[in-house]
Structure formats: structure tokens, C-alpha cells
Design a protein around this nucleic acid. Structure first.
Lengths: 262, 262
DNA sequence: CGATAGATTGAGTAGGGTCAAAGTTTGTGG
DNA sequence: CCACAAACTTTGACCCTACTCAATCTATCG
């Protein structure tokens, strides 16, 4: 993933005027000290609206494609994948969700959910009625900002994936994926010394626009180059000796691949 | 004053979505009779908040990457491209915007604009201060829904591009791009018998994750297969004899290409 | 009317898809 | 607890699509 932290700091915090923008800027700083921001957001949400808490286990579905849109879902713990099912029955992993992420945004415009939200892990999801949420947002601007920020972040994230897909060769894309996963955990204050990709090679490939064989080969190559290593038993648990190295490998591809403008 | 609107939503029937969802659903119907919905949205916006209208010509920029986020922009007429500039100086066409579309959403989460918004045509843009808009949204739930719907639509659109990129071969991707352009015009009540792609081959390629040569070849092939034809002079104006044919060609690729989940 | 940006087309190449054959886990039932 | 099956993974060989490089052609604007 392309790091934007330098750009964040470039807009030096001291010189700003305007309370709103300052707040937005503060929010934009990813994670803060081990996901404090997410904890605050969840607290605000829980205090402002009526949430239905639900425990899920791997494989559970929170909503399905085509169902009437009614709720937004916020992930309190666990990891989810969003599967968009095209008309002809093919599946596409359209997104990954971690603690603090919202799910169901696409339903707002369409009136029905645009994908299946499937748990890949045990966890807890909070459901919020959208109409209730709107009402609460009208009363509480902070909540509205929270919501907008979450939607905006999803737009940003999707654009970043796009960029990664267009500019990186397969190896780098997989490296980028692993970095993204690790960053996602890190920014939520979770451990990253040993991460478990709870997805099959086929799912990873589907998410990255690659075949499962290519993902497998890319992983083998990353191991060979000592950028990652597998845990002794099984090939799902990954250790990253040096995040910096992995991240720079992921960005190296930009020059190698074409797709330049002009 | 705020209480009034919140009561409306709080009292919506608890069956399965209620009045709100019904409204959302009505909104979800694309375009309606020649862009009536967009006209309504613009009217509502103009009536609810203070907008700065600005005329633009091809090449004009309304905001730039890294600038402090402050306004959202709504396109009243003309066509825009969003250019995301990566750290190493490479450009990426991250999106296309038509009448009624919003620009600048990515800035909400980041605190600064994530791309350049560049006019590709003469047109008119409306600028709205984000903080003012938030205040207006709190007063007027309809406006808030409008905003949410626009953000949601952007998420949906981005996912669709992703799907297209992953599942379609180059020819189909270009066909899909032209269909998208035509649909975008049609849903806004604009003419589609002769459309002008105001982008170079390089830009189109960049937007689709292809090289300019591949785009050129794809266009030539589409002409050969009589799915499109160029205007006599120049190769920028395209005529589509049969939208249905073009669209089915665009989707044909799904079976040809791999990337299936297992 | 030249100059320059953009478009087309061809030839060659390579990255990643496809097909295929083992190998490894995981899970289930006896 | 073991054994077998099913699912997942790895690796190899081959091939095709789309990228690269390069030459030529076409528009547009001074």
C-alpha cells in the first residue's frame, strides 16, 4: 500500500484555522495510538443509536446480495469479506473489513445490498437501522461526520486497490496485499508479528485479480526472497521479518510495469 | 427545528424498511425520464445551501491533490476527470464525472484532496462548503440522504469498474467503457447517438489499466465488428449503431477470462 | 505549410493464465 | 486415534494476451 503519512504531516497541523477541517484532519490520522480512534468511534456510535450486537463465526453471513437494504453494520471484532455476486453466478471478493469498518454502504444508493457480507473469523457485528442512524446524525453532527468519514475512507481504499491492480505486477500485488493486511491490523492495535490470512489462495487471487496459481507462486517467491515466512505447520500463518522491506518491494513494481500516462 | 425531522424518521414503520427505504428505493431507480432525478437533486441542493457557481473550460482544475479539503463540488454540466497523482509523479485517471456527480469525497477522510479534478469540457461546477453542507444536512434529512446516496453511488461505481477490470479482456473492457459513457449520458437525458470521448487513447488506457496501443487496437476491432463507428473526420466522435450489441459484447468476456473463485 | 501531439499498425516478447499432476492439510466417521 | 476423503496448495509445462518498441500516418494549430 502506498503510504500517505508523509503527506499527512506535510499539511502541518499548527497553521490550520477552521474547527471543522481541523477535526477532519485529526480524524484522518490513521489509527493513532493502537486504534484509539476506532474505539472512540464505536463508543460514540453505541452511545448515540440503538445497536443490535451479534456474535458471528467463520462462514456466517450478515446480509446477502439482493436483500432489501435496511441496516448498516459496523464490525466490532473479527474479519469479514464482501462477496459481490454477479448475475451469471461468479463471485468476486469486493472488499475486506476489519474492526471499526462499516458494511452495507453500497445498499444506500441501490436500495438493496450489493454483496454478501461473510465472516471469516469469529467476531462481533453491530447492526444499526439506517433510518434511525439518519435521525441520530441530524441530532449529532459528530456522528454524521463519523459516517461520512467511513464512506469516504471506503472510496479512498477502493481507489488505492485500483491503483495497485493497474500498476503492480503479480508479486508486488501480493506483497502489497500482505502489507495492507498487516497495516489494517496494526492501525487497530492488533498484533502483526504473526498474521493469519484467513483466505484461500483462490480468494486472495480473486480479490487481487490473479489466479490461485499465481498467488501461490508469488508467495513462494516472497518466501524465497525472505520478505515473508510461513509458520512451521501450515501455510496460512505468515511472519513478516521487516515490514519496510516488504512495503518497498510492493512499490518497486510501479516502475517495472507500464501504464504510464503519455 | 431539528426535532421535527428526527421525529419523522423515528416514527417510520418498523416492518421492513418503511417510508425511508421506500424513498431510497425510488431514488435508486436510475435517471428516470431523462435525468429528472438529477435536476431535482440540483434544485434541492441549490435551495438548501449556498453554492458558488463556476464556469469551467477544458483543462481547468477545480481542486488539486494535497490541497486542504474544504468544499465538495457538484457538476452541473460538462465532464470532469479525477486524476490521482501518486508520490512518484505518475498519473492515474481515477474517475469520470458527469452532470449531477459529486467530487471531492475522498477528501473527507484524508483532510486534503486525493486527486486533481480537471474539466475535459466546458461546463459549470457548484462548490459547497463542507461544513455548511453538514449543517444544512442536519436541518434537512433529504439533503443528507442525497449526499449519502451520492457517496454510496461512487462506491458502487468503483466496485463495478473493479469487476470489469478483473473479468474482462481488453476489447470487452473498452466496449464496457464506451457503454458506460453512453449510459452516463443517457441517464442524464443527453444525446447518445453521437458521443465524443474527450480523452486521448493514453487517458482511456490509463483509466482502464491498458496501454494506449491496446486501446487503439480494441477500438479498431470494435469498428471492424461494426459495434461502433467513427465520425467521418477525426476519431474522437463515436456512433453506436446498437447499444444492446455493444453491451452484450462487453459482458461476453466474463466467460472467456478466468479469475473464477475456485 | 511545417511542427507537434495524437493515433494506428506491425513485430517481437514476457507475464501471467490454463491445464495437469503431485503433495499437504483439515475434517469426519469408524 | 487412525484412516480416508475432500479441500487446498504447490509446482511444472505450455500458450496467449497484452505490453514494448518502433515506424508511419493523421489531425490541429501556430
Amino acid at each position: 500500500m502506498v503510504m500517505h503519512s508523509s503527506e499527512v504531516y506535510a499539511s502541518s497541523p499548527a497553521t490550520h484555522g477552521g474547527a471543522l477541517a481541523a477535526l477532519a484532519c485529526a480524524r484522518a490520522e490513521k489509527g493513532g495510538p493502537s486504534g484509539q480512534r476506532i474505539a472512540d468511534a464505536l463508543r460514540l456510535l453505541g452511545a448515540s443509536v440503538d445497536v443490535q450486537r451479534r456474535l458471528v463465526r467463520a462462514g456466517d453471513t450478515v446480509y446477502q446480495t439482493g436483500q432489501r437494504f435496511s441496516h448498516l453494520y459496523i464490525l466490532n471484532s473479527g474479519i469479514f469479506k464482501l462477496l459481490s455476486l454477479s448475475a451469471d453466478g461468479r463471485e468476486q471478493v469486493a472488499g475486506l473489513k476489519f474492526r471499526g469498518d462499516w458494511m452495507g454502504f453500497a445498499g444506500i444508493a441501490k436500495g438493496f445490498y450489493a454483496c454478501d457480507a461473510v465472516a471469516m473469523d469469529t467476531g462481533e457485528v453491530w447492526a444499526v437501522r439506517y433510518d434511525t442512524l439518519l435521525a441520530a446524525c441530524a441530532r449529532q453532527p459528530e456522528l454524521m461526520m463519523l459516517l461520512h468519514e467511513a464512506m469516504s475512507a471506503e472510496i479512498v481504499r477502493e481507489r488505492e486497490s485500483m491503483l495497485s491492480v493497474f500498476t503492480l505486477p503479480a508479486d508486488a500485488r501480493v506483497a502489497d496485499f500482505i502489507s495492507y493486511w498487516a497495516d489494517s491490523l496494526a492501525s487497530r492495535g492488533l498484533r502483526t508479528d504473526q498474521i493469519t490470512l484467513c483466505m484461500t489462495r483462490a480468494e486472495i487471487g480473486n480479490y487481487l485479480g490473479l489466479t490461485l496459481e499465481t498467488v501461490s507462486r508469488a508467495l513462494s517467491k516472497l518466501v524465497r526472497e525472505r520478505l515473508i515466512s510461513f509458520a512451521q505447520k501450515g501455510r496460512r500463518d505468515i511472519t513478516i521479518p521487516d515490514m519496510g522491506l516488504l512495503r518497498s518491494y510492493a512499490q518497486r513494481g510501479q516502475t517495472a510495469a507500464g501504464h504510464t500516462l503519455q
